[in-house]
C-alpha cells in the first residue's frame, strides 16, 4: 500500500480554512451595512490570521514546545518541537484583539445612542 501524504491533506485543510476565513471576513467588512456585522467580520479576519501564523510555525511530527523533566536531551535528538515564536505572537494578538473588539463595540453602542440606528447607510449626519 502506497503511503498517503497526510501532511499534504492537512495543509489543504489548514491553509484553506485560514485563507477562507480571511476572505469571508473581508467580504463581511466590505459588503455589510450593519456595524455589529462589520465588527463580526473583523473578528473573523483576526481568527484567520491567527490560524495562518500557527500553521506556518508547525513542524511535521513536532511536539508542543514544553519540556518535560527528561526533555533536556531532546535538544540534541528525538522529535522536533514546533516553532515557539509564532505561538507567542499569536498569544499576544488574541488578547489585543479582544481589546480592539471591545472598543469597537463600545463605539457601536455610542453611535446607536446618538443616531437611533446602527446601519451605516441610515446615518445621515456627519456630526455627533
Amino acid at each position: 500500500m502506497d503511503t498517503i501524504d497526510y501532511y499534504q491533506i492537512m495543509s489543504i485543510g489548514v491553509y484553506g480554512s485560514a485563507i477562507g476565513l480571511i476572505l469571508i471576513g473581508l467580504y463581511a467588512v466590505l459588503m455589510k451595512k450593519h456595524l455589529t456585522k462589520i465588527v463580526i467580520g473583523l473578528s473573523i479576519i483576526d481568527a484567520g490570521i491567527n490560524l495562518l501564523f500557527i500553521a506556518i510555525g508547525y513542524i511535521s511530527n513536532g511536539t508542543a514546545p514544553i519540556y518535560s523533566s527528561q526533555g533536556i536531551d531532546l535538544v540534541k535528538t528525538g522529535t522536533p518541537m514546533v516553532d515557539p515564536v509564532p505561538q507567542a505572537l499569536v498569544l499576544t494578538a488574541i488578547v489585543i484583539g479582544f481589546g480592539v473588539t471591545a472598543v469597537a463595540l463600545s463605539l457601536v453602542i455610542r453611535l446607536y445612542r446618538h443616531h437611533n440606528t446602527a446601519r451605516i447607510d441610515q446615518i445621515k449626519s456627519l456630526k455627533w
Binding site: M10, A55, Y58, I59, S60, P80, D83
Partner: peptide, 9 residues
C-alpha cells in the same frame, strides 16, 4: 506545511 524551518537546535 510542516517543513522544519528552524534548523539545527
Amino acid at each position: 506545511f510542516g517543513a522544519n524551518r528552524m534548523g539545527d537546535l
